[in-house]
Protein backbone atom coordinates (compact mmCIF):
# COMPACT_ATOMS: atom_id res chain seq x y z
CA UNK A 1 0.00 0.00 0.00
CA UNK A 2 2.68 2.48 0.98
CA UNK A 3 4.61 1.98 -2.23
CA UNK A 4 1.70 1.83 -4.67
CA UNK A 5 2.14 4.77 -7.01
CA UNK A 6 -0.63 7.34 -7.12
CA UNK A 7 -0.97 9.86 -9.91
CA UNK A 8 1.81 12.02 -8.53
CA UNK A 9 3.27 10.42 -5.44
CA UNK A 10 3.07 7.53 -2.99
CA UNK A 11 2.44 7.28 0.75
CA UNK A 12 6.08 6.59 1.61
CA UNK A 13 7.11 9.86 -0.01
CA UNK A 14 4.37 11.70 1.86
CA UNK A 15 5.63 10.15 5.09
CA UNK A 16 9.09 11.51 4.33
CA UNK A 17 7.50 14.93 3.89
CA UNK A 18 5.97 14.85 7.34
CA UNK A 19 2.66 13.05 6.99
CA UNK A 20 1.89 10.70 9.86
CA UNK A 21 1.46 7.42 7.99
CA UNK A 22 1.43 4.27 10.09
CA UNK A 23 1.17 0.59 9.38
CA UNK A 24 -1.27 -1.36 11.52
CA UNK A 25 -1.70 -5.10 11.64
CA UNK A 26 -5.46 -5.06 12.13
CA UNK A 27 -8.07 -2.40 11.32
CA UNK A 28 -9.01 -2.59 15.01
CA UNK A 29 -5.58 -1.13 15.77
CA UNK A 30 -6.55 1.95 13.76
CA UNK A 31 -9.71 2.27 15.85
CA UNK A 32 -7.56 2.05 18.98
CA UNK A 33 -5.31 4.80 17.71
CA UNK A 34 -8.34 7.00 17.09
CA UNK A 35 -9.78 6.23 20.53
CA UNK A 36 -6.49 7.12 22.21
CA UNK A 37 -6.00 10.33 20.20
CA UNK A 38 -9.34 12.13 20.26
CA UNK A 39 -7.73 15.38 19.10
CA UNK A 40 -6.51 13.89 15.84
CA UNK A 41 -8.32 12.67 12.75
CA UNK A 42 -7.45 9.08 11.82
CA UNK A 43 -8.18 7.91 8.28
CA UNK A 44 -7.89 4.18 7.66
CA UNK A 45 -7.36 2.90 4.14
CA UNK A 46 -10.01 0.21 3.86
CA UNK A 47 -8.83 -1.64 0.81
CA UNK A 48 -8.91 -5.19 -0.35
CA UNK A 49 -11.07 -7.94 -1.71
CA UNK A 50 -13.87 -9.69 0.13
CA UNK A 51 -11.34 -11.27 2.51
CA UNK A 52 -10.53 -7.99 4.21
CA UNK A 53 -14.07 -6.61 4.27
CA UNK A 54 -15.18 -8.35 7.50
CA UNK A 55 -12.24 -6.84 9.39
CA UNK A 56 -12.87 -3.38 7.98
CA UNK A 57 -16.60 -3.67 8.62
CA UNK A 58 -15.90 -4.55 12.23
CA UNK A 59 -13.59 -1.55 12.58
CA UNK A 60 -16.35 0.79 11.40
CA UNK A 61 -18.83 -0.97 13.63
CA UNK A 62 -16.61 -0.56 16.67
CA UNK A 63 -15.93 3.08 15.86
CA UNK A 64 -19.69 3.63 15.73
CA UNK A 65 -20.21 1.78 18.98
CA UNK A 66 -17.59 3.89 20.68
CA UNK A 67 -19.09 7.03 19.17
CA UNK A 68 -15.76 8.07 17.69
CA UNK A 69 -15.92 11.22 15.62
CA UNK A 70 -12.25 11.22 14.65
CA UNK A 71 -12.17 7.93 12.74
CA UNK A 72 -12.98 7.54 9.06
CA UNK A 73 -12.27 4.99 6.39
CA UNK A 74 -11.34 5.56 2.78
CA UNK A 75 -13.15 2.64 1.21
CA UNK A 76 -11.78 0.99 -1.89
CA UNK A 77 -13.12 -2.53 -1.64
CA UNK A 78 -13.36 -4.61 -4.77
CA UNK A 79 -15.26 -7.81 -5.47
CA UNK A 80 -14.04 -10.82 -7.40
CA UNK A 81 -17.09 -12.25 -9.22
CA UNK A 82 -18.02 -9.04 -11.11
CA UNK A 83 -14.41 -8.70 -12.25
CA UNK A 84 -14.45 -12.29 -13.52
CA UNK A 85 -17.64 -11.57 -15.45
CA UNK A 86 -16.13 -8.39 -16.90
CA UNK A 87 -13.13 -10.37 -18.15
CA UNK A 88 -15.33 -13.15 -19.54
CA UNK A 89 -17.61 -10.65 -21.30
CA UNK A 90 -14.71 -9.03 -23.07
CA UNK A 91 -14.43 -9.97 -26.75
CA UNK A 92 -10.70 -10.36 -26.28
CA UNK A 93 -11.05 -12.75 -23.34
CA UNK A 94 -8.41 -15.48 -23.34
CA UNK A 95 -9.14 -17.01 -19.97
CA UNK A 96 -10.02 -20.70 -20.04
CA UNK A 97 -10.27 -21.42 -16.33
CA UNK A 98 -10.08 -19.59 -13.01
CA UNK A 99 -8.39 -20.38 -9.73
CA UNK A 100 -10.69 -18.65 -7.26
CA UNK A 101 -8.78 -17.12 -4.36
CA UNK A 102 -9.12 -19.39 -1.35
CA UNK A 103 -9.36 -16.73 1.32
CA UNK A 104 -11.94 -14.68 -0.57
CA UNK A 105 -14.01 -17.86 -0.66
CA UNK A 106 -13.31 -18.57 3.01
CA UNK A 107 -15.40 -15.47 3.66
CA UNK A 108 -17.90 -15.52 0.79
CA UNK A 109 -18.13 -19.21 -0.07
CA UNK A 110 -18.45 -20.20 -3.72
CA UNK A 111 -22.17 -20.06 -4.45
CA UNK A 112 -21.62 -16.82 -6.41
CA UNK A 113 -19.25 -18.68 -8.71
CA UNK A 114 -21.61 -21.46 -9.70
CA UNK A 115 -23.70 -19.37 -12.12
CA UNK A 116 -20.49 -17.98 -13.64
CA UNK A 117 -19.08 -21.45 -14.31
CA UNK A 118 -22.38 -22.51 -15.88
CA UNK A 119 -23.09 -19.37 -17.90
CA UNK A 120 -19.62 -18.99 -19.40
CA UNK A 121 -18.78 -22.69 -19.36
CA UNK A 122 -15.54 -22.03 -17.51
CA UNK A 123 -13.94 -24.22 -14.83
CA UNK A 124 -13.41 -22.51 -11.48
CA UNK A 125 -11.27 -24.10 -8.78
CA UNK A 126 -11.22 -22.62 -5.28
CA UNK A 127 -7.52 -22.85 -4.44
CA UNK A 128 -5.28 -22.39 -1.42
CA UNK A 129 -2.07 -20.40 -1.30
CA UNK A 130 0.70 -22.89 -0.54
CA UNK A 131 2.75 -23.61 -3.65
CA UNK A 132 1.46 -27.15 -3.75
CA UNK A 133 -2.12 -25.98 -3.33
CA UNK A 134 -1.65 -23.95 -6.48
CA UNK A 135 -0.21 -26.93 -8.34
CA UNK A 136 -3.17 -29.06 -7.33
CA UNK A 137 -5.61 -26.27 -8.25
CA UNK A 138 -4.06 -26.01 -11.70
CA UNK A 139 -4.20 -29.78 -12.07
CA UNK A 140 -7.90 -29.80 -11.18
CA UNK A 141 -8.60 -27.00 -13.67
CA UNK A 142 -6.77 -28.82 -16.44
CA UNK A 143 -8.62 -32.04 -15.71
CA UNK A 144 -11.90 -30.16 -16.05
CA UNK A 145 -10.75 -28.67 -19.36
CA UNK A 146 -9.64 -32.06 -20.62
CA UNK A 147 -12.93 -33.69 -19.78
CA UNK A 148 -14.99 -30.76 -21.02
CA UNK A 149 -16.45 -29.97 -17.60
CA UNK A 150 -17.07 -26.47 -16.26
CA UNK A 151 -17.81 -26.66 -12.56
CA UNK A 152 -16.83 -25.04 -9.32
CA UNK A 153 -14.46 -27.37 -7.50
CA UNK A 154 -12.86 -26.82 -4.12
CA UNK A 155 -9.19 -27.67 -3.78
CA UNK A 156 -8.99 -25.73 -0.50
CA UNK A 157 -11.51 -27.84 1.38
CA UNK A 158 -9.56 -27.61 4.61
CA UNK A 159 -10.41 -23.92 4.87
CA UNK A 160 -13.38 -23.18 2.62
CA UNK A 161 -17.02 -24.20 2.92
CA UNK A 162 -19.57 -23.73 0.18
CA UNK A 163 -21.51 -21.09 2.11
CA UNK A 164 -18.39 -19.31 3.41
CA UNK A 165 -18.40 -17.54 6.76
CA UNK A 166 -22.00 -16.45 7.30
CA UNK A 167 -21.23 -14.53 10.45
CA UNK A 168 -18.68 -12.43 8.60
CA UNK A 169 -20.97 -11.86 5.62
CA UNK A 170 -23.68 -10.62 7.95
CA UNK A 171 -21.50 -7.91 9.43
CA UNK A 172 -20.14 -6.94 6.02
CA UNK A 173 -23.65 -6.31 4.71
CA UNK A 174 -24.64 -4.40 7.83
CA UNK A 175 -21.89 -1.92 7.09
CA UNK A 176 -21.41 -2.02 3.33
CA UNK A 177 -23.60 -1.78 0.23
CA UNK A 178 -22.58 -3.09 -3.15
CA UNK A 179 -21.96 -0.40 -5.73
CA UNK A 180 -20.00 0.44 -8.85
CA UNK A 181 -16.26 0.63 -8.55
CA UNK A 182 -13.57 1.94 -10.84
CA UNK A 183 -10.69 -0.52 -11.20
CA UNK A 184 -7.24 0.81 -11.86
CA UNK A 185 -6.30 0.30 -15.45
CA UNK A 186 -9.60 -1.37 -16.29
CA UNK A 187 -12.31 1.15 -15.65
CA UNK A 188 -15.74 1.12 -14.08
CA UNK A 189 -17.23 -2.30 -13.36
CA UNK A 190 -20.85 -2.24 -12.24
CA UNK A 191 -21.62 -3.59 -8.76
CA UNK A 192 -18.01 -4.54 -8.18
CA UNK A 193 -17.21 -2.80 -4.91
CA UNK A 194 -18.35 -2.08 -1.39
CA UNK A 195 -19.40 1.34 -0.19
CA UNK A 196 -20.40 2.38 3.31
CA UNK A 197 -24.14 2.20 3.91
CA UNK A 198 -25.83 5.56 4.48
CA UNK A 199 -26.08 4.89 8.23
CA UNK A 200 -22.28 4.91 8.36
CA UNK A 201 -21.73 7.91 6.11
CA UNK A 202 -20.09 9.83 8.91
CA UNK A 203 -17.24 7.34 8.84
CA UNK A 204 -16.62 7.93 5.16
CA UNK A 205 -13.39 9.87 4.68
CA UNK A 206 -14.61 11.11 1.30
CA UNK A 207 -17.60 12.72 3.05
CA UNK A 208 -15.73 14.00 6.08
CA UNK A 209 -12.98 15.72 4.16
CA UNK A 210 -13.63 17.85 1.16
CA UNK A 211 -11.40 16.03 -1.26
CA UNK A 212 -13.40 17.05 -4.32
CA UNK A 213 -13.52 14.58 -7.14
CA UNK A 214 -10.41 12.51 -7.26
CA UNK A 215 -9.21 11.54 -10.68
CA UNK A 216 -6.32 9.17 -10.82
CA UNK A 217 -4.30 8.90 -13.95
CA UNK A 218 -2.14 6.00 -14.93
CA UNK A 219 1.27 6.28 -16.47
CA UNK A 220 0.70 6.33 -20.24
CA UNK A 221 3.15 3.47 -20.81
CA UNK A 222 1.51 1.16 -18.25
CA UNK A 223 -0.66 -1.63 -19.67
CA UNK A 224 -1.56 -3.07 -16.26
CA UNK A 225 -5.23 -3.25 -17.21
CA UNK A 226 -4.63 -5.52 -20.17
CA UNK A 227 -2.18 -7.62 -18.20
CA UNK A 228 -4.70 -8.05 -15.41
CA UNK A 229 -7.29 -9.17 -17.96
CA UNK A 230 -4.90 -11.72 -19.39
CA UNK A 231 -4.83 -10.25 -22.89
CA UNK A 232 -1.21 -9.19 -22.64
CA UNK A 233 1.81 -10.34 -20.66
CA UNK A 234 4.38 -8.07 -19.03
CA UNK A 235 6.73 -8.97 -21.90
CA UNK A 236 4.39 -7.11 -24.24
CA UNK A 237 4.90 -3.93 -22.22
CA UNK A 238 7.47 -1.42 -23.41
CA UNK A 239 7.99 -0.13 -19.90
CA UNK A 240 8.53 -3.56 -18.30
CA UNK A 241 12.03 -3.83 -16.85
CA UNK A 242 12.99 -0.50 -18.39
CA UNK A 243 10.85 2.30 -17.00
CA UNK A 244 9.04 -0.02 -14.61
CA UNK A 245 10.67 -2.25 -12.02
CA UNK A 246 10.05 -3.21 -8.39
CA UNK A 247 12.28 -0.30 -7.39
CA UNK A 248 10.22 2.13 -9.41
CA UNK A 249 6.84 0.62 -10.21
CA UNK A 250 4.53 2.38 -12.64
CA UNK A 251 1.52 0.22 -11.93
CA UNK A 252 0.16 -1.92 -9.12
CA UNK A 253 1.14 -5.32 -10.64
CA UNK A 254 4.82 -4.40 -10.20
CA UNK A 255 4.51 -3.41 -6.54
CA UNK A 256 4.05 -6.52 -4.46
CA UNK A 257 5.75 -9.83 -4.99
CA UNK A 258 2.64 -11.66 -6.23
CA UNK A 259 1.75 -8.97 -8.75
CA UNK A 260 1.97 -10.33 -12.31
CA UNK A 261 4.70 -7.97 -13.44
CA UNK A 262 6.70 -8.37 -10.25
CA UNK A 263 6.46 -12.16 -10.51
CA UNK A 264 7.66 -12.06 -14.11
CA UNK A 265 10.48 -9.80 -13.01
CA UNK A 266 11.52 -12.23 -10.27
CA UNK A 267 11.16 -15.41 -12.27
CA UNK A 268 12.05 -14.53 -15.81
CA UNK A 269 14.48 -11.65 -16.09
CA UNK A 270 17.70 -12.84 -17.66
CA UNK A 271 16.95 -16.49 -17.05
CA UNK A 272 15.21 -18.83 -19.45
CA UNK A 273 13.03 -15.99 -20.62
CA UNK A 274 9.43 -17.11 -21.00
CA UNK A 275 8.40 -16.46 -24.57
CA UNK A 276 5.34 -14.37 -25.05
CA UNK A 277 3.24 -17.37 -25.94
CA UNK A 278 -0.40 -16.46 -25.57
CA UNK A 279 -2.11 -18.73 -23.12
CA UNK A 280 -4.86 -19.62 -25.58
CA UNK A 281 -2.44 -21.55 -27.73
CA UNK A 282 -2.60 -24.33 -25.21
CA UNK A 283 -4.76 -26.87 -26.97
CA UNK A 284 -7.70 -28.41 -25.29
CA UNK A 285 -7.63 -32.14 -25.81
CA UNK A 286 -10.95 -33.80 -26.31
CA UNK A 287 -12.04 -36.37 -23.78
Amino acid sequence: MLRVPGSTTDLLSLKARGADVRIVYSPLDAVRIAAANPDRQVVFFAIGFETTAPANAMAVWQAARLGLDNFTVLVSHVLVPPAMCAILESPTCQVQAFLAAGHVCAVMGWTEYEPIAARYHVPIVVTGFEPLDLLEGILMAIRQLESGRAEVENQYARAVKREGNLQAQKTVFRVFDIGDRKWRGIGMIPASGYHLRPEFARFDAEERFDVGTIHTSEHPACIAGQILQGTKTPLDCTAYGVLCSPQKPLGAPMVSSEGVCSAYHAAGRGLATPRAVPLFELTRSEP
Binding site: T9, L14, G18, R22, R40, I214
Partner: peptide
Protein backbone atom coordinates in the same frame (compact mmCIF):
# COMPACT_ATOMS: atom_id res chain seq x y z
CA UNK B 1 -0.18 3.00 21.14
CA UNK B 2 2.19 5.38 19.49
CA UNK B 3 2.11 8.55 21.52
CA UNK B 4 -0.04 11.33 20.35
CA UNK B 5 2.23 14.15 21.37
CA UNK B 6 3.31 16.29 18.51
CA UNK B 7 1.82 18.34 15.79
CA UNK B 8 -1.62 17.96 14.37
CA UNK B 9 -2.07 15.90 11.25
CA UNK B 10 -1.10 17.69 8.09
CA UNK B 11 -4.03 19.13 6.26
CA UNK B 12 -5.13 16.38 3.89
CA UNK B 13 -5.88 18.98 1.24
CA UNK B 14 -2.20 19.79 1.10
CA UNK B 15 -1.36 16.14 0.73
CA UNK B 16 -3.32 15.90 -2.48
CA UNK B 17 -0.32 17.60 -3.98
CA UNK B 18 -1.41 18.91 -7.35
CA UNK B 19 2.20 19.36 -8.47
CA UNK B 20 4.24 16.22 -8.96
CA UNK B 21 6.79 15.67 -6.23
Amino acid sequence: LPNSAGSALPNPANLACPAPI
